[in-house]
Design a protein around this nucleic acid. Structure first.
Lengths: 219, 219
DNA sequence: TGTACATCAGTGAACGCGCGTTCACTGATGTAC
DNA sequence: TGTACATCAGTGAACGCGCGTTCACTGATGTAC
């Protein structure tokens, strides 16, 4: 069955980046390039959704700099990517901040859910890098779990606890938080990976998640 | 902060395969190699969990054959990988078969859930290839959604419908099936990608999924 | 029964690619004297 | 005030790698005459 006429195409979806004119930083401002590189890497991660596809050379290209310039700031590729991942997590962590002014815990949980969904939808490359594949960097794995997503998860637990308390609900907040997270993750992840399916509206699924898990105020 | 002493290491986790002694197939048996290649590719997918990391050359190596031999059976890499993906889906599709003898729909739903979980756990590379990343092959994308996972999803809907009927539950079976699938997927996917977290027992989470979604028999 | 030949399964060398990383460098700018 | 020099930001060529794919081939085996 080799009689296939599929046209030849570039093998991978590896993101390319066109060079950008760029003036040398003034003395003492060398660290600016570091941030530029992190941003460039982060943008490439956003479109690739997979660290393996983000190369040193592509990052340098996107930053308008020779491949070697990156080595002034990062020992190797892993270090650059770990820094870019960290930066993605900082962006993600803002989710909870944006809902900080909502007092009712049930409303706030709903808002966080919608914000999580929108983050995954709008920045789905970033989302996938953070949550949809095995953490690729040994060292930062620990850090990320313990600090970034760890702290986000801790915030979720706190919020869930507030909901349970408001209902005199004796369930374990950590366990319920795992239920919330797994479900929301499943929703956004399958939507990204299987976009062609006829998905029900996200708002409805998120609202039903709250009711199914008993995270709405008892009347 | 470039003063890092991290030891150098191979860049990617690209799976390698040691050659295997292999006799030439007798005349007329050339198709055997085709299956060997598909199996080899499938095994590499299982350990890589990412089609991008499965190369023509690695597959040929694993099958004990020169890289060019594959081109007798597949026009190009995409065609081989599409065939390997198909074969992974066949394996997955057996999940429903193994529970076919359970009559009670609620019990069967639980059994399917546990089987799904075990598949993801035992063959987590296969699971990730099938469900945890954007379908990479334009053509087979359609096929896979429409036939393989489509048909698995249809089976899930049928099973959920049976549960709803047994309870005189008027909800839409398709919608509830999306709820079931997203949640189970979230559970198994996050467990794989964030294995370092302190996950609650899977059995409990699966059982609670059924009760939360009202997929247990009314007393 | 023998032999020329078509068919089949698979090989081996070579191509151009992008990659991570090395090494040695360039050229501007601040500073000590 | 002038100048030698250290520092800094970044460059350019080159390495060896695995990759997908091309082209031309080899050597065994069945078959027509």
């Amino acid at each position: 069955m080799t009689d296939v006429t599929s046209e030849k195409k570039a093998r991978s979806g590896r993101p390319t980046a066109t060079a950008v004119a760029r003036a040398q930083n003034p003395r003492g401002q060398g660290r600016r390039l570091r941030e530029d590189l992190i941003n460039a890497a982060s943008n490439l991660l956003a479109t690739a959704g997979d660290p393996d596809q983000v190369s040193m050379r592509a990052v340098a290209r996107a930053a308008g700099v020779s491949p070697m310039a990156a080595y002034r700031h990062f020992a190797d590729r892993d270090e650059l990517l770990a820094a870019a991942l960290d930066s993605c997590f900082m962006e993600f962590a803002k989710l909870f901040e944006t809902t900080a002014d909502i007092e009712d815990p049930f409303d706030r949980l709903g808002a966080v859910g919608r914000a999580y969904f929108e983050f995954a939808n709008d920045e789905n490359g970033h989302y996938r890098v953070l949550f949809s594949q095995p953490m690729p960097f040994d060292k930062s794995d620990f850090n990320i779990l313990e600090s970034h997503s760890g702290s986000a998860f801790v915030q979720l637990i706190t919020l869930v606890q507030a909901c349970l308390d408001a209902n005199d609900d004796p369930r374990d907040a950590t366990y319920v938080s795992y239920q919330v997270w797994t479900w929301v993750h499943g929703m956004v992840d399958l939507r990204i990976t299987h976009a062609a399916l006829a998905w029900p509206p996200a708002e409805q699924m998120l609202a039903d998640l709250q009711t199914s898990l008993g995270l709405v105020r008892h009347s």
